[in-house]
């Protein structure tokens, strides 16, 4: 199975987010971009499939500023991915998730791909638009918010679950297919030192995606705001647990109006 795994450099969870002086967007200055935990999990998933199906290969691709993508791609190589491709473009072209999907397509079409895997992206900004957009651009079926992805050798199909309002759905899908994963349910492996050192010299292919602002409908950041700093909890004074409970329930219904 030829697997393409799409990796996104995201701001480290510990990052202190702040807006640019003009207030339009997030200020990337001094922010550490890392391979997101959920992308580590997507790589792990890809490697598990590769190990289960003889003759498979995993191709890591990543889009964005070169300084950020190369870091993430080398981490993927160190974990065991077979090839790495960086997608270059002007930052403005990638402030829209549909444009991001178009950039990913540019690289995917140049690679063998039975399965395209994406990690969960909610810690960042796209909230699940990319897998569907990518599926439509590639003309392939897609599923986002997938859990428990497995390969069923007998039926030669993918098996997976999704939890929706309707309940826990189970699905099977033939290849080729685009899959967006919901969460890290696996325990991602950590890279070994020799592999990390070797990954420093690994070749990274380059694809240039369409530059300039996308034509037709698109979106751009207009304003980036930090919430007023939380001032800390109002602590409830009490003598007995019952008193604490009565006070909290009263606050929640009268002050916070969230209850009953």
């Amino acid at each position: 199975m030829e697997i393409v795994v799409c990796l996104k450099p995201v701001p480290d969870a510990e990052t202190r987010a702040r807006p640019l002086p003009d207030g339009t967007r997030f200020d990337p200055e001094g922010v550490k971009f890392v391979l997101a935990g959920y992308d580590e999990s997507a790589v792990e998933q890809a490697l598990l499939l590769k190990e289960a199906i003889p003759g498979s290969a995993v191709h890591a691709i990543s889009l964005g500023a070169r300084s950020r993508t190369d870091e993430v791609l080398r981490a993927a190589i160190a974990l065991g991915c077979d090839s790495a491709t960086a997608i270059e473009a002007s930052p403005a072209a990638f402030e829209d998730p549909i444009a991001v999907a178009a950039g990913l397509r540019a690289a995917i079409e140049g690679l063998p791909h039975d399965l395209v895997l994406l990690g969960k992206q909610s810690g960042d900004e796209e909230e699940g638009l990319v897998p569907g957009a990518l599926g439509e651009l590639l003309g392939l079926p897609h599923f986002g918010f997938v859990v428990d992805l497995r390969w069923d050798a007998t039926s030669q199909r993918l098996r997976f679950g999704r939890s929706t309002e309707a309940g826990e759905e189970s699905w099977e899908a033939p290849l080729p297919c685009v899959i967006g994963l919901q969460q890290a349910w696996n325990d991602p492996r950590t890279a070994k030192l020799p592999a990390i050192l070797k990954s420093r010299r690994a070749p990274i292919a380059t694809v240039r995606a369409p530059t300039g602002p996308p034509e037709g409908p698109t979106s751009e950041p207009a304003r980036f705001e930090l919430p007023p700093p939380r001032t800390g909890a109002k602590m409830i004074e009490y003598r007995t647990p019952a008193e604490a409970a009565t006070k909290l329930v009263r606050i929640l219904s009268e002050e916070a109006k969230v209850f009953p």
Binding site: I98, V130, A133, S219
Partner: peptide, 19 residues
Amino acid sequence: TTFGRDLAGRVAVAWNAAA
């Protein structure tokens, strides 16, 4: 929801819209 968010990106490309 899962249903709507998963559909939105795909509809946007199929209908040529921003999302």
